[in-house]
Design a protein around this nucleic acid. Structure first.
Lengths: 219, 219
DNA sequence: ACTTTCATTTCGCTC
DNA sequence: GAGCGAAGTGAAAGT
């Protein structure tokens, strides 16, 4: 990784055109050829950048970064105040815990938490308008489509409604019940869901993980 | 801005929990107190970060970053290989051109691209639940509500559906046709739109701009 | 301050 | 590789 602090102006021409007036900034050149232009504030997102794969052509006071799609980042450099290179190697990567995917995994392992006697048909059940998070059968053999969210809001209810409408057109599946499962369900989402005959279930992430742990430690 | 290259491990506890094993990385500390942890690859997104406002407490080999919501980023430092500070000042900011607003402008100037004989009634046509991007009349004098998106996805179809439902209750306007216009329309969004009687139009941004240029250069 | 919407979204997964 | 949904989405604009 090469770090350059320089007074520069930047022009991007690609999916849109953008211009950065002359000012001191950090230029971060990564090992994969990508480049980031950062200011000293407005964190997280660079002012301008080019994602890999791309090539950097350095001329006197003018760097031209080009990617496969022909997009260009042109950096005009007036003055360099710092320039250093560092060997970092490949990063071992981030381990995340507590996102929707994990919640879905836990519920897939314990469908009984959502409804007595529920059994899993499959996760990410495919439909023409996208996958249903969990498809189950209830104790009577009826189909149940379950939408899992970390935070239950109206968008999620709309999403499940679309799936249900489609699934209920399929005579092999219909009638399909809907369940909206989330750690927290906002009142408006709950009202809308129940108005549409969708059952709401709030799930406790730590409890789910606890049950999982208990089961594991029994053996 | 302070730049530190260090062998470190990072733990985030907040909206989720995340862990980064020990490895060399760049730590970028910005003037507003925010901090970014970058590896030598990936795109512009940091491996881990904390957005301002937040406070950094530096102890021996252990930096603790805390924000208002109580989320924490704990950086355990084994070895520092670089440490430099730089005065950058406030950035003058980015000028952009070519986003959705611009696409809407171009279509407003050339409604014929969306449908033969279409004429513009007005942009940002107001309704009780928000403005319709473009309201036009077709060659027969009928009303057409147009939703403009850079990328046409299901959300956009839902939005237009809500507008149409409302507009069609107004006896002075009804019947109102719906058109979903975007540079790219995803198949699922297209299926949903056409199922609801909404016509889909894909528009070529460069061609629109080209036509505009040609018209200008004719005079 | 809160809500809505856009994004050069990026990222990860499934088909 | 394309397509889709989630994201610690972030960021900006309007209310």
């Amino acid at each position: 990784m090469r770090l350059v602090v320089a007074r520069c102006s930047v022009d991007y021409v690609g999916r849109l055109t953008a211009h950065l007036p002359l000012a001191p900034r950090l230029l971060m050149l990564k090992a994969d050829g990508s480049i980031l232009v950062h200011a000293d504030g407005g964190s997280y997102k660079p002012l301008n950048w080019m994602t890999p794969p791309c090539t950097i052509q350095e001329a006197e006071g003018r760097w031209t970064v080009t990617n496969k799609a022909g997009e260009q980042l042109i950096i005009t450099i007036e003055e360099i105040t710092h320039d250093s290179s560092h060997e970092l190697g490949v990063d071992p990567g981030l381990r995340k815990d507590g996102v929707e995917a994990h919640l879905q995994e836990l519920l897939a392992e314990q469908p009984g938490v959502i409804g007595d006697g529920y059994t899993l048909v499959r996760r990410e059940f495919p439909t023409a308008i996208g996958p249903v998070d969990l498809m189950c059968r209830d104790s009577g053999g009826g189909s149940v489509a379950i939408e899992v969210k970390r935070r239950g809001e109206i968008d999620g209810v709309e999403q499940l409604t679309r799936y249900l409408e489609l699934l209920n057109r399929d005579p092999l599946l219909a009638p399909v019940q809907g369940v909206f499962a989330a750690q927290v369900i906002k009142p408006q989402a709950r009202v809308l869901a129940e108005d549409r005959g969708i059952r709401c279930v709030t799930v406790d992430y730590d409890a789910l993980r606890g049950v999982e742990k208990d089961e594991l430690t029994l053996f």
